[in-house]
């Protein structure tokens, strides 16, 4: 695949109480973020399991970004801290498996900070573009329900 043509598909797990609202705010503020992102709203990033990140990548996503509340501001107290630990573990597991650990990343964004979310998304898209397509995708057709 020509890297210039490569448009990564990135699954973004966004916490209902912060990053999802920030994405909404980004829309209201007319802040543009790339269409490479597929947002999945979650009640809290602490609800996310390692399996979810792995399944997304296994099924052809080029990257996974997990956007939770700022540390100390989790609606459920410590869900975002648990999410960060799981994201870190997933990164280690990916590295062991032969994928780049940078394909999964955790960011902390408040509901009022749309700019930060947009910046994080832009950065993630560029990082994943640099890494290139998920090598699993070339060997397995992407599942439509995950990355249309």
């Amino acid at each position: 695949m020509n890297l210039k043509e490569f448009e990564p598909k990135i699954v973004a797990f966004c916490c209902h109480y912060c990053a999802y609202a920030a994405a909404d705010l980004a829309g209201s503020m007319r802040l543009q973020y790339p269409a490479n992102i597929r947002i999945i709203r979650t009640p809290c990033t602490g609800r996310l399991e390692i399996e979810y990140f792995l399944k997304a990548l296994e099924n052809g996503a080029d990257g996974v970004i997990v956007a939770g509340c700022e540390e100390g501001s989790c609606h459920f107290k410590e869900g975002n801290l648990a999410a960060r630990r799981r994201v870190n573990y997933t990164g280690e597991l990916l590295a062991e498996s032969g994928l780049e650990k940078e394909r999964v990343r955790m960011v902390n964004v408040s509901a009022a900070n749309a700019r930060r979310l947009v910046d994080a998304i832009n950065e993630m898209v560029e990082n994943v573009r640099r890494l290139g397509p998920n090598p699993l995708k070339e060997k397995t057709p992407m599942k439509q329900e995950i990355c249309p």
Partner: peptide, 18 residues
């Protein structure tokens, strides 16, 4: 059950990469 799911995913990823 959860670790089975995680390790299976990792093995599928690793096998495809290799």
């Amino acid at each position: 059950e959860r670790e089975v799911s995680i390790i299976s995913s990792a093995l599928r990823i690793a096998s495809k990469v290799r």
